[in-house]
C-alpha cells in the first residue's frame, strides 16, 4: 500500500526547495512583509504621505499619535510624523542600496580575482581588506564623513567603504572553495579565459553566501545611516531621516516621548527584519541539514 517514492523528493527544483525552506518559519514571513511594506512606503512616499514632510505648523506642535488628522502625531515644529517616517524610509532605502552597491563594487571583483588566482593578487587585496577591517565600522564611517563633509551622499559612500572588506572576505572564501572543484579545473585545462570562468562558473556559486551577507549589510546600512544622521553627519535638516527624527525628538524628550518612540521602533523593526531575512536566507540555501 505504500506510495513510494514521494513526488517531492523526486521533482523539487532547488528554487522551490529554497522558497519552501525560507517561507517555513513565521518570523521569516513576517520580516519579509515588514521589508516589503517599507519598500512600498519608500517608493510611494509622495502619494502615501498625508502631508508635506517639511511643512511646519507651530500651532499643532507635539500632537500625540491618533490626534486629529495625524495618525502618528506631530513633532516639535508641527510636522506630520507619519509623512516624515515615509520619506525617511526613502532615505534609509537609498542609503542601504547605495552603500551596498559601493561595497559590492569595491569588494566583489578583487575578491573573485584573489580567490581564483591567489598569488600576489590575493596578498595585496587581502592586506588592504585587513587594514580596512581593523577600523571599527562606524568609526571609519565617521572619519570619512568628517573629512568629506556631512551630507547623505558622503554618508552612504562612507558606509559603502565599510562594506568593501566584508564583502571581499565572504566572496573570497567562497571562491577559494569553488576553485578546487573539478569543473573549474576542467574549464581551465581547455584554455577558457579567466573572465569567462569567473562569470560562468565562480560567480553563480558564490551568490548564496553573498546574498546572505547583502541582506545583513542592508540592516547595518540602515542602522549606520540612522546613526550618522542622528549625529548630524548624514541627512541635513530639515529633510527627514529616521536618525535625524530621533535626534530631534530626543532634544525635546522632556515635553513628549512620541517623536523618539516612533522612529526608534521603526529602526529596530526594520533592522531586525533585515537580520531575520539574512538568517533565513543562510538557513535556506545549500544542502538540507539535520532533516529526516
Amino acid at each position: 500500500m505504500s506510495v513510494l517514492p514521494t513526488t517531492r523528493t523526486v521533482v523539487e527544483s532547488p528554487r522551490r526547495r529554497f522558497v519552501r525552506r525560507f517561507t517555513g518559519p513565521w518570523a521569516n514571513r513576517f520580516a519579509l512583509l515588514v521589508l516589503l511594506v517599507w519598500l512600498v512606503a519608500a517608493v510611494a512616499a509622495p502619494w502615501l504621505a498625508p502631508y508635506d514632510p517639511l511643512v511646519q505648523d507651530i500651532d499643532a506642535r507635539r500632537l500625540a499619535p491618533l490626534s486629529d488628522g495625524h495618525l502618528l502625531g506631530t513633532d516639535a515644529l508641527g510636522r506630520d510624523t507619519l509623512s516624515r517616517l515615509l520619506y525617511g524610509a526613502r532615505v534609509a532605502g537609498l542609503a542601504a542600496i547605495t552603500s551596498v552597491g559601493v561595497g559590492l563594487l569595491g569588494g566583489l571583483v578583487p575578491a573573485l580575482l584573489a580567490g581564483l588566482l591567489r598569488g600576489w593578487w590575493d596578498a595585496v587585496f587581502s592586506r588592504i581588506a585587513d587594514a580596512l577591517l581593523s577600523f571599527p565600522p562606524l568609526l571609519l564611517a565617521l572619519a570619512i564623513v568628517g573629512v568629506m563633509g556631512p551630507n547623505l551622499t558622503n554618508a552612504m559612500l562612507a558606509i559603502g567603504v565599510v562594506f568593501v572588506p566584508r564583502f571581499y572576505r565572504v566572496v573570497r572564501a567562497a571562491t577559494l572553495a569553488v576553485r578546487e572543484e573539478t569543473f573549474i579545473e576542467a574549464s581551465r585545462s581547455i584554455g577558457t579565459p579567466t573572465a569567462w570562468i569567473l562569470r560562468r562558473h565562480v560567480l553563480p556559486n558564490v551568490l548564496s553566501p553573498l546574498a546572505v551577507q547583502i541582506s545583513l549589510a542592508f540592516g547595518f546600512a540602515i542602522l549606520a545611516e540612522s546613526s550618522l544622521s542622528f549625529l548630524g553627519l548624514g541627512v541635513q535638516p530639515p529633510d527627514p531621516s529616521w536618525g535625524s527624527m530621533l535626534s530631534e525628538g530626543r532634544a525635546a524628550w522632556f515635553y513628549t516621548p512620541w517623536p523618539v518612540i516612533v522612529p526608534t521602533v521603526t529602526v529596530v523593526l526594520t533592522v531586525l527584519a533585515c537580520n531575520v531575512v539574512g538568517d533565513g536566507l543562510s538557513d535556506s540555501v545549500g544542502r538540507e541539514k539535520g532533516r529526516a
Partner: peptide
C-alpha cells in the same frame, strides 16, 4: 531648529535656504 523654521518661512517668499550645521 531655529534654522529649520527660518528656512520654512523664507520658502514662503520664494527664498531657498540650505542649512549647514
Amino acid at each position: 531648529t531655529t534654522a529649520e523654521i527660518i528656512k520654512a518661512q523664507l520658502a514662503e517668499i520664494g527664498i531657498d535656504m540650505e542649512i549647514k550645521a
